[in-house]
Nucleic acid binder design. Structure first.
Lengths: 132, 132
DNA sequence: ATCGCTGTATTAGTAATTTAATACAGTAAG
DNA sequence: CTTACTGTATTAAATTACTAATACAGCGAT
């Protein structure tokens, strides 16, 4: 289930893209399976169909899904390996950003490790599947 | 030195706010010292003065700096303790986001620790003071 | 062919960010 | 007082993301 954060600065179509990648990565949607239709997903997320369409269009352009007009959008055959590479890059990026932000505030490696540990524990206690 | 990322999704005034907080936190600007003038900083960052003014206005509203019209904006007397609290909150937020993103892709705590370690090492090797 | 679903495309409107050009007001030095 | 610097305020324009309404085109079942 994809969750949308309207309060942040991250565009909805980016959140949708990341959400789809996540679901492919987790095997919630498998290769050659159909994604939800643009209109359905838009209704579910309470978002404009065009916003979902943009996410799908970009995912197609990046090779993760392929689209057959009139039928549906499908997870690409080779999505697994693509996602795998993308996942590594994505995660490196995410933590690089977090760490360099911490560095900007003068935290050293030890303090960063401490925070990560504390947040890992904190999130474990608040139930597994909850995004927020 | 504050760096602005125009390619991202984060508003410039937010980046400036974070940059100032960082410099206060690091002691680059100390309590009761004057910040660069709005026009100077705008020229340095190649940004509109209004954008810097907005950052200053919000920082003042949050209590980090105080402004004397006709003179300059100064770092607040009690900025240290304020920043300290804000820093903790900010860092928790940053790593919460990173971790919950990782969780969305099915990474467990061990894998997250491994990535954090690898990125910490990676950034050490690429010189200390570099943001990117 | 018609109906109902799919994705696609176009156009227009709203909201937020940023830019731009000004004008105003306080401070300090000449 | 004049000059030159501070921050502040206002208004308009440009840009971008998102929303909204609508039309078009492909696919498949009836």
């Amino acid at each position: 289930m994809i969750t949308i954060e309207t309060s942040g600065f991250i565009p909805i179509y980016e959140q949708i893209k990341k959400g789809i990648k996540s679901e492919i990565s987790l095997g919630v949607i498998k290769a050659n399976e159909a994604l939800p239709s643009i209109r359905d997903l838009a209704a579910e997320l309470v978002v404009n169909p065009n916003t979902v369409a943009r996410a799908y269009r970009e995912l197609e352009h990046e090779g993760f899904i392929c689209t057959r007009k009139g039928k549906a959008s499908f997870v690409s055959e080779n999505s697994s390996s693509l996602i795998q590479k993308d996942k590594v890059r994505l995660m490196e990026d995410v933590f690089d950003r977090a760490i360099s932000e911490a560095r900007k505030f003068g935290l050293d490696a030890a303090e960063i490790r401490r925070i990560v540990e504390s947040r890992l524990k904190n999130q474990e206690n608040r139930g597994e599947g909850e995004g927020r």
